[in-house]
């Protein structure tokens, strides 16, 4: 009621050049429905994960559990090690990958942003060309697997995403547009070397763009499964995304070995594996962090995206 009142009061302040009440209501209704369509599929997954396996198998997925059950989560917890390990892999590659990536991209972007650096065109071209021409999957795979033998390492999950041409250009554009050259000049007059100017003047002034790129990079690492699909076959190196993928294909991938299952089956021959609900519980476990983090970081993402739209 309080909000309705507030809107009523606010309405009077709107200028005559506003959409009509009818149109406003129509748009509001439309967006409420659309927002619901964005959230409902996720709620469906959550609801199924809390449902009883038998009722799901019998009557299908429901937006509200027909029969509430924690069976799927019990099942996941019974063999929690692979899931925790996958979280560990995902967190490691996301944190280390993002830090390394941000560091070396920034160090590349700075020299090519300097107008007085005579080779900046050559090095800018080297980065541009990687955006324009993509070698394709086959040679990429062969170089990593048969050339460098990096399959089944944590490095191969990070290295291919270390330097993204588009991000480097984003940082470079920020450096050349938003750092006043006069500031760098005065630092030089004060006797600061190039490195000191970079760390003490350029970096602190560039935190907005670094935050945006860092978050975009975090998202890339966290959501990546393609590199695992190509290069990872060892169970202990599976990221959470890759384990989710494997679980959707085959429920057995919830566990790192089949011993857990045989133990359960031996203890209780009538045990029915909660495959449908456990799958969805696995999805909930995988979706969790993104859902909680994204509303806070969304602002920086949007900032980064709109900067990106202006340049590239």
């Amino acid at each position: 009621m309080a909000t309705a009142h507030a809107t009523a009061v606010k309405k009077k302040r709107f200028s005559a050049n506003e959409i009509s009440n009818g149109a406003n209501t129509a748009i509001n209704t439309f967006f409420w429905i659309y927002s619901l369509l964005c959230v409902l599929p996720l709620l469906l997954v959550v609801a199924v994960s809390f449902s009883d396996e038998k009722s799901v198998a019998l009557n299908g997925y429901k937006l509200w559990p027909e029969k509430f059950s924690l069976g799927a989560y019990d099942f996941l917890l019974a063999d929690w090690k692979p899931i925790v390990q996958s979280y560990g892999v995902s967190i490691f590659i996301t944190v280390v990958g993002t830090i390394v990536s941000l560091t070396i991209m920034t160090m590349y972007a700075y020299p090519i942003s300097r107008r007085d650096f005579k080779h900046r065109h050559v090095f800018s071209f080297i980065i541009f060309f990687t955006i324009l021409f993509n070698s394709g999957l086959v040679p990429f795979y062969l170089v990593y697997k048969q050339g460098l033998h990096l399959q089944n390492t944590l490095l191969v999950l990070m290295l291919p995403l270390f330097v993204q041409g588009f991000f480097v250009i984003l940082i470079r554009t920020f450096f050349s547009n938003s750092i006043p050259p006069a500031l760098m000049e005065s630092a030089k007059i004060d006797g600061a070397g190039e490195l000191r100017t970079f760390f003490q003047i350029v970096i602190p002034l560039s935190l907005p763009v670094l935050a945006s790129v860092g978050l975009l990079s975090t998202l890339n690492y966290w959501n990546d499964w393609f590199l695992s699909l190509l290069f990872i076959s060892q169970d202990n190196l599976m990221s959470i995304q890759f384990r989710m993928y494997k679980t959707l294909l085959d429920i057995a991938y919830l566990s790192s070995n089949s011993q857990a299952y045989s133990a359960i089956m031996q203890a209780n021959p009538n045990f029915q594996m909660p495959s449908e609900t456990a799958r969805m519980a696995m999805a909930v476990v995988g979706i969790g962090p993104i859902i909680f983090i994204y509303p806070f970081f969304q602002r920086y993402f949007i900032q980064g995206l709109t900067v990106g739209a202006v340049k590239g």
Partner: peptide, 27 residues
């Protein structure tokens, strides 16, 4: 004055060579 710039760019260059330029030739 500028030598340090080449050092700063070196790590990213190594990654680009492994990740982009060798596969391009491999194409």
């Amino acid at each position: 004055k500028y030598g340090i710039f080449y050092l700063m760019m070196a790590p990213a260059l190594v990654v680009l060579i492994i990740n982009n330029y060798i596969p391009m030739i491999g194409g």
